[in-house]
Nucleic acid binder design. Sequence first.
DNA 1: AGTGTATCCTGCAGGC
DNA 2: TGCCTGCAGGATACAC
Length: 279
Amino acid sequence: MPELPEAETIVRGLRASVLRQTIRRVEVVRPDILRQPKADFLRRVRGRRIESVGRRGKKVLIGLDGDGLIVVNLGMTGRLLPFPVVPRGESRPGHPAVRFRFEGTGLLVFDDTRRFGSVEVLTDSEWQTRSASMGPEPLDSGYTAGNLFDGLQHSRTPVRSWLLDQKRIAGVGNIYANEALYLAGVHPRREARDVRRQEAVALHRSIRRVLRDAIRAGGTTIRDYRNAEGQPGQYARRLYVYGRDDEPCLKCRTEVQRMVFANRSAFYCPTCQPSRSER
DNA sequence: AGTGTATCCTGCAGGC
DNA sequence: TGCCTGCAGGATACAC
């Protein structure tokens, strides 16, 4: 569920409560979300101090003193809830997977209803390798429309699938891929390599705009997403096409269509996003 | 290389 | 009310 803006919102909210905390005890309620044997995980995390909280793509990075970091993949329903910051009522559904208990009273819970998320501890060197296998950060100042256009050239996959591939661009998920394509006027099923330079420029702009606006709104809550204060994001009301099938396009009143490919729903306006580019 | 499909898992909405 | 189906912000593995 959470894409880049949701991960970013969580990271910002988490800093105040977990930075400089020392992990005293760890309870692994759901061992299946660990990407390594529980004993290894515990040994490498216990007693460590949290020195940084960051993000790469959709992943939340919890930097530890000395070498190493905890990498959290939120999956569809993952939440990082620091207590006692989060009001009691907000933890209601309650599918705790891992509890990090800090020295003193603090507690950070990774909660994940569907358990598609994962938690692992890596060395800095292991993380470097992992990070290098991921695509560029779309919000980095160094990420240009030219980079996007060049990347698209080599692929025949539908442009929506291209945007969802974390090895090609980091952090874009199904909501923001659909929104960005709508704003750029590009049909989600167009072959990536058929996207023209001018369209790539528009798409580059719309990806960055959508991600930045969504961060500003605290992310999109459809159902499960909550930030580190247990609160929903406000971007859902600003969506143009995602989840709006059968409703009128906000620009031209044509009915927004829903189409499934690569096992995911795509939403688009057939008028604003023609399936073939015009020459 | 790309795509369609299935899988992991739980919860919820809608139809009957 | 209850049962069934389909659907969900992700990621991966498989056969073709």
